[in-house]
Design a protein around this nucleic acid. Structure first.
Length: 849
RNA sequence: GCCGGAAUGGCGGAAUCGGUAGACGCAGCGGACUCAAAAUCCGCCGUCCGCAAGGGCAUGAGAGUUCGAGUCUCUCUUCCGGCACCA
């Protein structure tokens, strides 16, 4: 074999071998256990970033490991190819989004291939291809006929200067990013998917997702947000006609403390009251300013204005004033809330600000004051100052009040969801067209199957002022599929989350052009292991769970509800950032161009650019263009090879943690692979010498590490798998002169490395004559004989403090173990009485004196 | 604001069920090899006291449970992810 480890040559050869063998192309095989391993497909933004490298390496390590375990493993790849960045790039470069996107796909595919990922490229798909999005449109028309897709108004960010709808990302400090104009809320007609119809099931099924992280399930549970409460009606008269203002509350027990009502600015009652009330009209206009992001709205200063109208308290008949509040969301519940300042923090603040009465109606056993809010005011307790309800606890009060309201048709118990229906319409060009034709006579008509797909013209370049599809009459003008008369095509496109809600099922069915999915999906689905960023914990994963149920109910994948059996949420990749400060102007310097000076203990004392300018450390954060702290995977692969990049990303941090990038540590990973190479060279040329006692200890160590590796890889803690490989090499280097043991250890090492650094493992395996293809070698398991020990080492503690170690013959019982320890520790015990002795078998003895 | 996480040496991290805190690596320091450098190899490496043997302290802060807490409970601080049109 070659003296020097040259990753480029090794990787080129290994990749050529896999290509020639078609190593990663798989098909259905009922004889073997199937395993579907999927990393979230990327948005083709231009080139791979380190987050991609990390994501796909994790998936690839698991894929290759399960293959070596004998399973039929599918690992496909595709492109989430519709979306906003392509339109932005199109505007900047005057190039159609389609071309930009396809160029990016071609480049990123090449990069993925250079990483040596075990992907079945025969299944590649891109969501912008008509052959894919046709089925978005097809399923939409099914849902539309069932009423699971429907039209209503929704609120969007409106840029009055460009006359266009903005994404939340395009609203910066309340202004349009291109125009700087103050953004307004605007209601427009949109299509929605009725995900709330599945709310109960989506919530209940979370319990069954044993392979999902608890934190993700908890976030989904809170997002769906089931709450049980009471819907309460407050009567009022409008033009002498009786009307009812409905609210929902989980605290019906505080009804007797309601002193005002607050409605959203868009609530019909507010619109009515504003007709002859100019200040109110102005206030409602003011509420329309700003974007629609909940994070912004929730942090607004709470403001309100009385409507001059009042409603009647359903129990006391008291007149209660109705206010418009900027903190009430029309999208949640009824768009109106009852204000109970005594027992709700927001209402308390509102009442204090506007001088509304604050009444205590719950006794929590703690002090109450109308001056300053205390957390205890919101606790459950017994009703007071509540007439007939005095003395009742929370549940009895809610039950009694709900019953009383029901008898008068002014309320009943109700389950309320935080989850809202999914608005899928986007007033954008680069997406899947919504397959609807608007006919003056027939209304909204879904496009019939034989006219699908509605193909998106690919030659348009958006200019930032609305959807360019509207400016293309050939697209807009059509005939009604129902009556044949002239009609207009819908120009909105679908939310790209629709595209990504079912792509995993489509991967199972390459070449299928007559159906959304076929029976092959039933073989491969569900995805056994899904891997992706924690930032997708709610939306993408929830929409996919919804879609799987929709597809189940369409009998597309019968019986399947959950798309992902096991979920691994990887952490983000972070890097340090540095800048030079020239007269207050920051110039960001790439960390690769910064030289640090350290003190004797290795602490950083100073940092400079390579040409000697002082730089300021700005802390650690996500890699971004604006801070110039990105690490280009391509440069890394060219310098060290894909195996080093893969090893480092696995070794540096457990998959679920954030990964802080360090160029120096990459060097260490490269060094390790060079040591593996050097060891193999030495192994080839070594002579046999007589066996020593060392050889048994080394063998014990290698098999112990392997046992730990197998435990760690099952729980996907891949950083300790990588460090386990290093430990095996450290042990092997002490084995000089024992060719049999060295061969066994080396074969273990290479097979453990095969999933992480597949190229070099493949090369060395063949080079040393261990076999044709390491991917076909079985995954190693530790030999119980190597793990057997004559004596077990125990830690001895005296009253919880570690004082030493003792060797205990294997097989000793607890009493024997304890007495050995007591004898050994006599100098600490002296004449003191032993109160008790705790023996943890195989580990520790604690003598309490 | 609301929901969910995280915090361990100079740095990344390890510690499986509550049982030796700091595995493995990076950086640093010392040495070998070399004319020299790079590469490579060997040794040291939480902190304080001590010549040493040894001992004290230490897992973001503060309390608690326990023979024993990085791990469990409560309170707090800081940072990160999400909040429905970035993907």
């Amino acid at each position: 074999m070659q003296d020097r480890y040259e990753p480029q040559a090794v990787e080129r050869d290994a990749q050529a071998f896999w290509d020639a063998q078609g190593s990663f192309n798989v098909s259905e095989d009922p004889a073997r256990r199937k395993f579907y391993c999927l990393s979230m497909f990327p948005y083709p933004s231009g080139k791979l970033h380190m987050g991609h490298v990390r994501n796909y390496t994790i998936g690839d390590v698991l894929t290759r490991h399960y293959r070596m375990r004998g399973m039929n493993v599918l690992q496909p790849m595709g492109w989430d190819a519709f979306g906003l960045p392509a339109e932005n790039a199109a505007m900047a470069n005057k190039v159609p989004p389609a071309r930009w996107t396809r160029d990016n796909i071609a480049y990123m595919k090449k990069q993925m291939q250079s990483l040596g990922l075990a992907l079945d490229w025969k299944r590649e798909l891109a969501t912008c291809d008509p052959s894919y999005y046709k089925w978005n449109q097809w399923i939409f028309t099914r849902l539309f006929r069932k009423g699971l897709a429907y039209k209503k108004t929704g609120v969007v960010n409106w840029d009055p200067a460009d006359q266009t709808v903005l994404a939340n990302e395009q609203v910066i400090d309340g202004r349009g990013w291109r125009t700087g104009a103050l953004v307004e809320k605007r209601e427009i007609p949109m299509y929605f998917f009725r995900i709330t119809a599945y709310a109960e099931e989506l919530l209940a099924a979370l319990d069954g997702l044993k392979g999902w992280p608890e934190q993700v399930k908890l976030m989904q549970k809170n997002w769906i947000g089931k709450s049980e409460g009471v819907r309460i009606g407050f009567e009022y008269f409008l033009n002498n006609k009786k009307q009812i203002l409905w609210v929902f509350t989980t605290r019906a027990d505080t009804l007797m403390g309601a002193t005002f009502m607050a409605v959203a600015a868009e609530h019909p009652i507010a619109t009515f009251a504003a007709e002859d009330n100019p200040p109110l009209k102005a206030f409602i206009e003011e509420c329309k300013k700003g974007g629609v992001q909940e994070a912004d709205i929730a942090q607004l200063e709470k403001k309100g204005m009385p409507t001059g109208l009042s409603v009647r308290h359903p129990i006391t008949n008291e007149e209660i004033p109705v206010w418009v509040g900027n903190y009430v969301l029309m999208a949640y519940g009824e768009g109106a809330v009852m204000g109970v300042p005594g027992h709700d923090e927001r209402d308390f603040g509102f009442a204090r600000k506007y001088g509304l009465p604050i009444r205590q109606v719950i006794d929590t056993g703690k002090a109450f004051s109308t001056e300053a809010w205390e957390e205890s005011f919101a606790e459950h307790g017994r009703c007071i100052h509540s007439g007939n309800y005095d003395g009742l606890d929370y549940q009895s009060a809610v039950d009694r009040i709900a019953a009383d309201l029901k008898s008068r048709n002014l309320g009943e118990k109700q389950v309320q969801w935080r989850l809202r229906d999914w608005g899928i319409s986007r007033q954008r060009y680069w997406g899947c067209p919504v397959p609807i034709v608007h006919c003056p006579a027939c209304g909204d008509v879904p496009v019939p199957d034989d006219q699908l797909p509605v193909v998106l013209p690919e030659d348009l370049v958006p200019d930032g002022t609305g959807n360019p599809l509207n400016k293309r009459p050939e697209f807009v003008n059509t005939t009604c599929p129902s009556c044949g008369k002239p009609a207009k095509r819908e120009t909105d496109t679908m939310d790209t989350f629709v595209d990504s809600s079912w792509y995993f099922a489509r991967f199972a069915c390459p070449g299928q052009d007559r159906a959304m999915v076929d029976e092959r999906a039933s073989y491969w689905m569900p995805v056994d292991q899904y891997i992706g960023g924690i930032e997708h914990a709610i939306l993408h994963l929830l929409y996919s769970r919804f879609f799987e149920r929709v597809m189940r109910d369409e009998k597309l994948i019968p019986g399947l509800a959950e798309p992902f059996t096991n979920l691994l949420t990887q952490g983000m990749v972070l890097a340090e950032s540095y800048y030079t400060d020239a007269k207050g102007r920051r110039e960001w310097v790439n960390p690769a161009d910064v030289v640090v000076v350290r003190d004797a203990k290795g602490r950083i004392t100073e940092a400079r650019t390579k040409d000697g300018r002082e730089v300021i450390y700005d802390g650690i954060g996500t890699m971004s263009k604006s801070k110039n702290n990105g690490v280009d995977p391509q440069a890394l692969i060219e310098k060290y090879g894909a195996d080093t990049a893969r090893f480092y990303t696995m070794f540096a941090s457990p998959p679920t943690n954030t990964l802080e990038w360090s160029d120096e540590s990459v060097e260490g990973s490269f060094r390790f692979l060079k040591r593996v190479w050097a060891y193999c060279l030495k192994y080839e040329n070594q002579d046999s010498t007589p066996k020593s006692a060392e050889q048994k200890a080394v063998r014990f160590e290698i098999h112990s590490v392997l046992k730990q590796i197998n435990y760690d890889i099952e729980k996907h803690q891949l950083n300790t798998v990588a460090s386990g490989a290093m430990k095996i090499l450290n042990a092997l280097e002490r084995l000089e002169g024992c060719p049999e043991e060295a061969k066994e250890g080396l074969q273990i090492l290479l097979r453990v490395l095969a999933p992480i650094t597949p190229h070099v493992a493949h090369h060395l395996w063949r080079e040393l004559g261990f076999g044709e293809d390491i991917m076909r070698a079985p995954w190693p398991d530790p030999d119980p004989a190597a793990l057997a020990q004559d004596e077990v080492e125990y830690v001895v503690q005296i009253s919880g403090k570690t004082r030493g170690k003792v060797l205990v013959p294997a097989g000793s019982d607890n009493d024997q173990t304890a007495s050995i320890a007591i004898t050994a520790m006599s100098k600490y015990i002296g004449d003191k009485a032993i109160r008790r002795t705790i023996v943890v078998p195989g580990r520790l003895i604690n003598i309490v004196i």
